[in-house]
Amino acid sequence: TFVEFNGKKVEYPTPEAAEKAAKKLAKKLNLKVTKKNGNYKLE
């Protein structure tokens, strides 16, 4: 499962880990999380 932000793509071993990381990053970077095709994107 990938988390995409600032043009970077980071892969996580589980969807749970990706979701957790996405939410944490979104909060830190003041972005919102969108889920697309099972992957997460911060914008």
Rank of each mutant, 00 (worst) to 15 (best):
V3N: 01
A26I: 03
V3Q: 00
K41E: 10
N37M: 07
A17L: 13
G7I: 01
N37K: 06
T1W: 15
P15Q: 12
K23E: 09
G38L: 04
L29D: 02
Y40R: 02
Y40D: 02
K36H: 14
A17T: 07
E43K: 06
E4M: 09
N37Q: 08
P15L: 07
F2E: 03
V33I: 15
N30M: 08
L25K: 03
A21F: 08
G7E: 05
K35G: 05
T1K: 07
N6L: 14
P13F: 06
E43R: 06
G7M: 05
Y12L: 03
G38Q: 05
K32Y: 08
K20C: 14
K9H: 08
Y40V: 04
T1A: 11
L31E: 00
K27R: 12
E11R: 15
K23H: 14
A21E: 06
T1P: 08
V33Q: 02
A18H: 00
K20Y: 12
V33P: 02
K35M: 14
L25N: 01
A22W: 03
N37V: 04
T1C: 13
K41P: 01
E16I: 09
E43F: 12
K28P: 02
K35D: 05
T1Q: 05
G7W: 04
K36C: 14
F5Y: 13
T34W: 06
L31C: 07
K32L: 10
V10N: 06
F2C: 09
P13Q: 09
K20L: 12
K36R: 12
P13R: 10
P13M: 08
A21S: 06
A26E: 02
N39W: 09
F2D: 01
K27P: 00
V3T: 01
K36E: 15
Y12H: 03
E19D: 07
E19K: 11
P15H: 08
A22H: 00
V10A: 07
A26N: 01
V3W: 02
K36N: 13
P15I: 09
V3Y: 03
L25P: 00
A18P: 00
K32P: 03
E16Y: 10
K28Y: 11
L25V: 05
E4S: 08
A21H: 05
L29Q: 03
L31Y: 05
A26M: 04
Y40Q: 02
P13N: 08
K8V: 13
K9I: 13
E16W: 11
N30S: 08
L29I: 03
E4L: 09
T34A: 06
K27W: 09
K23G: 07
L31S: 03
K24S: 13
K28V: 11
T1D: 02
F2K: 03
L29C: 14
N37C: 14
E11H: 15
K27E: 10
L31F: 04
K8F: 13
V10C: 14
Y12I: 02
F2M: 07
F5K: 01
L25Y: 06
G38M: 04
N30W: 06
K28E: 11
K41H: 15
K32M: 10
V33H: 02
A17Q: 11
P13D: 10
K41C: 14
K28T: 10
E11V: 14
E19H: 12
E16Q: 12
T34K: 07
T34L: 10
N30L: 06
K23D: 08
L31A: 05
E43Q: 09
K9F: 13
K20D: 10
V3F: 04
E4K: 03
F5T: 02
K41M: 15
L29R: 05
A22Q: 01
K23A: 11
G7T: 04
L29H: 12
L25D: 00
K36T: 14
P15E: 11
E11S: 13
L31Q: 04
L31M: 12
L31V: 05
K36I: 15
A17K: 09
N39A: 10
F2W: 14
N39Q: 09
K28H: 11
T14C: 07
A17C: 10
P15K: 10
F2A: 05
N37H: 08
Y12W: 05
T34S: 09
F5G: 00
A22T: 04
Y12E: 00
K41N: 09
L31N: 00
K28L: 14
L25M: 10
A18D: 00
L29K: 05
A26G: 06
V10E: 06
K28I: 13
L42E: 02
K9M: 12
A17N: 04
A17D: 10
L29E: 03
K36D: 14
V33D: 00
Y12D: 00
V3R: 00
G38E: 06
K35H: 09
A18L: 02
N6R: 13
E11F: 15
N39L: 10
E11A: 12
E4P: 00
N39K: 05
L25A: 04
A18Q: 01
K41I: 15
A18N: 00
E43C: 13
A17H: 07
A26Q: 03
L31H: 02
L42S: 02
E16G: 09
K32N: 07
E19R: 12
N30K: 11
L29V: 03
V10F: 14
E11K: 14
Y40W: 12
V33C: 12
K35R: 12
P13T: 09
A22I: 07
L25R: 02
A26L: 02
K36A: 13
A22S: 04
K32R: 12
K28W: 13
K27T: 08
E4C: 14
L25F: 07
T1F: 15
N37I: 03
P15R: 12
E11L: 15
K28D: 08
G7L: 04
A18W: 01
K28M: 14
G38H: 05
P15T: 09
T34G: 04
K32D: 04
L42F: 05
V3S: 01
A17Y: 06
N6Y: 13
K24G: 09
N37W: 06
L29A: 04
E43D: 08
N6P: 02
N39P: 01
E43N: 06
G7F: 05
E19V: 06
E16N: 08
T1Y: 15
L25I: 10
E16R: 11
K32H: 09
K32G: 05
A17W: 06
N37S: 07
K23Y: 15
E4V: 08
K23T: 11
L42Q: 01
N39G: 15
K8I: 13
N30D: 06
V3P: 00
V33M: 10
A22L: 04
L31R: 03
T1L: 06
V33T: 04
T1E: 02
K20R: 13
K27M: 11
F5E: 00
Y12Q: 00
N39C: 13
E4R: 03
F5W: 13
V3D: 00
K35C: 14
A18I: 01
K23P: 00
K20V: 10
A21V: 07
T1G: 07
T14F: 05
N30V: 05
E16K: 11
L29G: 04
N37D: 14
V3M: 04
K35F: 15
V3E: 00
E43T: 11
T1R: 09
K23L: 15
V33W: 08
K23M: 15
A22N: 00
P15W: 09
P13G: 08
Y40I: 09
Y12V: 00
A17I: 09
K8H: 13
E43M: 10
L29F: 15
K27A: 12
K27G: 07
A22P: 01
K8A: 08
Y40C: 02
N30F: 08
K32T: 12
A18S: 02
T14W: 03
K9G: 04
L31T: 03
P15V: 10
Y40F: 13
E43L: 10
A22V: 08
K23N: 13
Y40G: 01
K32S: 09
T14R: 04
G7N: 08
V33F: 06
F5Q: 00
A17F: 05
T14S: 10
N6M: 14
G38Y: 04
G7K: 06
N6K: 09
E11C: 15
A26H: 01
K24N: 11
K8L: 11
N6E: 09
A18E: 01
V3C: 05
A21Q: 05
A22M: 04
F2S: 07
F2I: 11
K24M: 14
E11Y: 15
L42D: 01
K9Y: 11
L29T: 04
A17M: 12
L42T: 02
L42N: 01
N37L: 07
K28S: 10
K41R: 11
K32I: 14
K23S: 09
F2L: 07
T1I: 13
K20G: 06
L42K: 02
L42W: 02
E16L: 10
P13L: 09
E16A: 11
K32W: 06
E19T: 05
K8E: 08
K23I: 13
F2G: 03
N30R: 11
N39T: 12
K8N: 10
E19P: 01
Y12R: 00
Y40S: 01
N6S: 07
K36Q: 14
N6H: 13
K24F: 15
A17S: 09
E16S: 09
N39H: 14
F5I: 07
V3H: 00
F5V: 06
L31P: 00
K35E: 10
K24C: 15
